[in-house]
Amino acid sequence: MGHNVNVPPTLTTKMTARNVSVFYGPKQALKNVSIDVSRENVTAFIGPSGCGKSTFLRCFNRMNDTVASARVEGEIALDGHDIYAADMDVVQLRARVGMVFQKPNPFPKSIYENIAYGPRIHGLARSKADFDVIVESALKRAGLWDEVKDRLGESGTAMSGGQQQRLCIARAIAVDPEVILMDEPCSALDPIATAKIEELIDDLRGRYAIVIVTHNMQQAARVSQKTAFFHLGTMVEYGDTSTIFTNPVEARTKDYITGRYG
């Protein structure tokens, strides 16, 4: 039988969330959210402050474990394995599902050591030559190599904010993750640094499943292929980014996108 070239390849589902709810003490921050995250797409979570989008993002690598009052219900799976199962190694999980935070947070170490740190902990390299290759590769993928290759011994905290954020992305990439979570990665950056991060996200698409939380709707429209709109702890609508921004089904989505509230 002839191969039908018009059939689009099926997207590879990387992570799934089913009926996820999050409570901080008695307060429910997220209600019954289900979503599939594919490897090929950048998925954006948008919505007003306090709507639950960052809370949901933090469920994907169990960052909510660090909040004493937090309780997560429902199921989140990586390659079909429940990440909240008792036998899940959380350190390993966070290597596979990397996180880039709102405020760039390089370690107070050299640029080189910022990148080599994770691979060293996870035993991904032994010799100096191996580390050199990992460091160069991660910095190249993060679009930083040409800017920093002659000052790898300098402190990561001495760089500009935009460079620090790209260093944090390089640091996440260095342990060869499968998923990268980004929690408003550009909110502390100027427009030029923001454009560089957006270009970088575009370059990384397809190599990692990427989920980005953003307040900036133009940014979501530029970098993502799928968008989920959150409001008051619920996921109101989820679909192709182009549809969400031009032809949303839900009135609340339309109101938010056209600036009626937020």
Results as ranks from 00 to 15, higher is better:
L152I: 06
N6V: 13
E178C: 11
L152R: 04
V67T: 11
H3L: 14
G50N: 09
Q102H: 12
N216S: 12
T227W: 13
F45V: 11
G161Y: 09
R171A: 06
E237D: 01
D146I: 02
N32M: 03
E199W: 07
A138F: 09
N247W: 04
Y261A: 10
D87T: 13
R171H: 04
N6A: 14
A17P: 07
T227E: 11
T157K: 08
V37T: 06
N105M: 07
V135I: 08
T66K: 13
R260N: 14
Q102V: 13
N64G: 10
D130A: 10
D65S: 05
P191T: 11
F131T: 08
G233F: 01
R120Y: 00
V135H: 05
L124Y: 08
I83L: 13
A209T: 04
A158D: 10
F56P: 01
T258F: 12
L30I: 01
Q163C: 00
F229T: 00
D255N: 14
T234W: 03
L189I: 11
Q165M: 08
D150K: 15
A138D: 08
E199S: 14
R222N: 14
T241G: 04
P185Q: 01
N32T: 05
I192L: 15
K196R: 15
H215N: 05
E40Y: 06
T246D: 07
F23G: 00
I83R: 12
F230L: 12
K14V: 13
G123P: 03
L152V: 04
